[in-house]
Simulated assay, not measured.
Amino acid sequence: MFRICCSANEPLGQAEANWFRQQFGVEVLENYGMTEAYPMIGNFAGLMVKPGSMGRPVPGWDVRLLDDSEKEVGVGEQGEICLRARSNPQFPLGYWNRPDDTRAITGGDWFHTNDLATCDSDGFYWYVGRKDDVIKASGYRISPFEVEEVCCRHPAVEAAGVIGVVDAERGSRVKAYIVLAGRFNANAETADSIRQFVRAAHSQFGYPKVIEFLDELPSSQSGKVDRKALRERRPVTEF
Rank of each mutant, 00 (worst) to 15 (best):
L116S: 02
V174A: 07
A159P: 00
T106K: 14
V128C: 08
C152I: 05
S138K: 05
P144W: 02
D100H: 14
A168N: 12
S172E: 15
G94C: 08
D133F: 06
A137Y: 08
A181S: 14
H154E: 04
S143C: 09
V128R: 03
K131R: 12
V166N: 12
W126H: 08
V150Y: 00
A188Q: 12
G123D: 04
I178V: 13
A168P: 11
Y140K: 10
A181D: 13
D132M: 06
H112Y: 14
T106F: 15
G129E: 06
A117V: 05
V134Q: 05
R130T: 01
K131L: 05
W110N: 07
Y125G: 09
D133V: 03
A156Q: 01
G129L: 07
Y140S: 06
V166M: 12
G139F: 07
D101W: 14
V128L: 12
P92L: 08
L180W: 08
A104C: 08
E169P: 01
D115A: 05
G107F: 11
N187S: 11
V174E: 03
G182M: 04
T113N: 08
V134R: 05
G164E: 01
V174S: 03
F145P: 01
D132C: 06
E189V: 15
K175H: 10
A137R: 10
V165C: 00
I142L: 02
F124N: 07
I178T: 02
N187L: 10
G139M: 09
V150N: 00
N187F: 11
W96T: 12
G123I: 10
V157H: 07
Y125E: 08
V166Y: 12
Y125D: 11
V166I: 13
G182S: 13
P92Q: 09
R141V: 02
D101F: 14
V134H: 08
N97L: 13
I163S: 05
K136C: 11
G108V: 05
I135D: 02
E169Q: 11
T106M: 15
G107L: 13
P92I: 11
I163D: 04
Y95R: 03
R130K: 08
E146V: 04
G161N: 10
W96P: 03
E149D: 14
V128Y: 02
D167W: 06
R141E: 13
A188M: 14
R173K: 15
S172Q: 15
R173W: 09
E158R: 12
G107I: 10
W126G: 01
A176N: 03
S172F: 11
W126P: 00
C119E: 10
S172A: 15
K136H: 13
E158F: 14
N185V: 15
L116A: 04
S138N: 12
V147F: 03
A160L: 00
K175G: 03
V174K: 01
V134G: 06
R183Y: 05
V157P: 14
K175V: 07
G171M: 04
W126Q: 01
I105D: 06
V147D: 00
Y125F: 15
S172R: 09
T102Q: 07
V157E: 07
E158C: 15
I178L: 03
G123L: 11
D115M: 02
C119A: 09
H154Q: 11
E158M: 15
P155H: 10
R183F: 06
C152A: 12
A188I: 09
D109Q: 14
